[in-house]
Amino acid sequence: MRFLLQRTAFYLFTAWAAITLNFFIPRLVPGDPVQSLISRNQGRISADAIDSLRVLFGLDSDASIWEQYLDYWGQLLHGDLGLSFTFFPTPVSTVIGDSLPWTVGLVGITTVISFLLGTALGVGAGWRRGSWVDGLLPATTFLSSIPYFWLGLVAIAVFTGPGSFFPSSGGYEAGLVPAFDGYFIPSAIKHSVLPAATILVSSMSGWILSMRNMMVTVSSEDYITVAHAKGLSERRVALSYAARNALLPNVSGFALSLGFIVGGTLLVEIVFSYPGLGYQLFQAVGYKDYPLMQGIFLIITISVLVANLLADVAYLLLDPRTRKS
């Protein structure tokens, strides 16, 4: 419990540092948002509009940087992340709120499936070396060595096109309104199959390989021989003794990979024009949309920190040796 409090305090400190950096970095960038809006509109903005924009972005006040910093925290705690330029005048929090479910839905579920499937195959491959599962390894390793964007493009080229079942882009059929109904859900699932499959193909071999190697390492431990000598069933030795111990590094790896769900999926979403956070970030960079970038970075930072905390907790639960009594 004490350990957990210590870790939480550490992560809170890290979060504070990250948020503070997030506040200062845009202020170190030359130019300001109004200027970039002007240039986006190629100068066709009246002087009045420019003034009101300055007021809107809070650039009119001559508050000190310290006051601005405190204000920033105040706004942050109210969930106010500013206004997006790209989708002006939609608040950043709304933009993120709209795209986050897509990313979490697609990449989150895929990550979980990839972990479960890869780990299960790894257990099989490591326990019975030389079986058919072992034969799978070179194939999956080959697939994961292909650059992801290329794999995505090949998938689009091969499986989509006129008359094909799979759509090549987007998160749902154009014209549908996001809702939990019989039209939207099937369409969303249909749109997610191809990106999900490509993620699976490219990420699974990592889980298989690491689980297999841990299984092989653990299999030569003395307690595995003891378990055999005890006359336990093959299944019990494989699962409760070997896999249970081999799982530890994979579980913390999994918890960490949860943190990259939000941030690490840029390519998937760009290639498939999927309306998730990564695609939004891509657009934000293109339009110099600082508030949106800031907001997305904040979300990424927080999710990585939360994932780290989860990894700590998972390890604590699974490995009694890390618990301090």
Partner: peptide, 11 residues
């Protein structure tokens, strides 16, 4: 077995 230390499953 020989290894008193490693004969028990640590988890």
């Amino acid at each position: 077995f020989q290894g008193a230390m490693n004969s028990l499953n640590p988890v």
